[in-house]
Amino acid sequence: MAEPPRRVLVTGAAGRVGRVVLELLARQGVAVSALDLRDPGDLVADRVVTGRADDPAAVRAALDGVDAVIHLAAIPAPTLGTPEEVFLGNAGGTFVVLEEAGAAGVRRAAVASSFSALGLPWAARALHPAYVPVDEALPLQVEDPYGLSKQVDEATAAMMARRHGMTVVALRYPLLGAPGDRLGARAADYAEDPASGARELWTYLDTRDAARAAWLAIVRPIEGFHVVFATAPVTLAPQPTEDLLARFHPSVERRAPMPGRTAPVDLTAAGTLLGFAAEHLYEPVPAGEAS
Results as ranks from 00 to 15, higher is better:
residue 138 L to M: 15
residue 56 P to Y: 09
residue 244 L to Y: 11
residue 37 L to T: 07
residue 158 A to D: 13
residue 62 A to I: 08
residue 289 E to Y: 03
residue 232 A to G: 14
residue 268 T to W: 05
residue 55 D to F: 10
residue 186 R to A: 03
residue 166 M to F: 10
residue 219 V to H: 12
residue 210 A to T: 04
residue 282 Y to H: 11
residue 206 D to I: 02
residue 166 M to A: 13
residue 112 A to M: 09
residue 114 S to H: 14
residue 87 F to S: 08
residue 191 A to I: 05
residue 249 H to G: 07
residue 32 V to K: 02
residue 74 A to D: 07
residue 150 K to P: 13
residue 251 S to P: 00
residue 43 L to I: 07
residue 45 A to G: 07
residue 3 E to C: 01
residue 205 L to I: 15
residue 269 A to R: 09
residue 71 H to R: 06
residue 32 V to T: 14
residue 69 V to S: 08
residue 239 Q to V: 05
residue 20 V to M: 01
residue 270 A to R: 05
residue 281 L to M: 02
residue 257 P to Q: 01
residue 179 P to Y: 03
residue 191 A to H: 03
residue 279 E to K: 12
residue 98 L to E: 12
residue 69 V to Y: 07
residue 177 G to T: 04
residue 1 M to P: 12
residue 12 G to C: 02
residue 242 E to L: 01
residue 290 A to P: 13
residue 126 A to H: 15
residue 37 L to F: 00
residue 8 V to E: 03
residue 148 L to A: 15
residue 96 V to Q: 04
residue 281 L to Q: 02
residue 148 L to G: 12
residue 134 V to W: 03
residue 76 P to Y: 03
residue 44 V to Y: 00
residue 207 T to W: 01
residue 61 A to V: 08
residue 282 Y to F: 13
residue 201 L to Y: 12
residue 232 A to V: 08
residue 183 L to Q: 08
residue 48 V to S: 05
residue 136 E to H: 12
residue 107 R to E: 10
residue 29 G to Q: 03
residue 72 L to E: 02
residue 190 Y to R: 03
residue 244 L to P: 10
residue 237 A to Q: 01
residue 22 L to N: 06
residue 38 R to Q: 13
residue 162 R to H: 11
residue 226 H to W: 10
residue 263 A to M: 03
residue 254 R to P: 03
residue 69 V to A: 07
residue 197 G to F: 05
residue 78 P to A: 03
residue 167 T to D: 11
residue 194 P to V: 14
residue 280 H to V: 01
residue 115 F to L: 15
residue 55 D to L: 09
residue 208 R to K: 07
residue 48 V to M: 08
residue 226 H to K: 04
residue 157 A to D: 13
residue 168 V to H: 00
residue 278 A to F: 04
residue 28 Q to P: 00
residue 246 A to G: 13
residue 76 P to V: 12
residue 266 D to P: 06
residue 205 L to G: 11
residue 198 A to F: 01
residue 67 D to H: 02
residue 86 V to S: 12
residue 46 D to I: 00
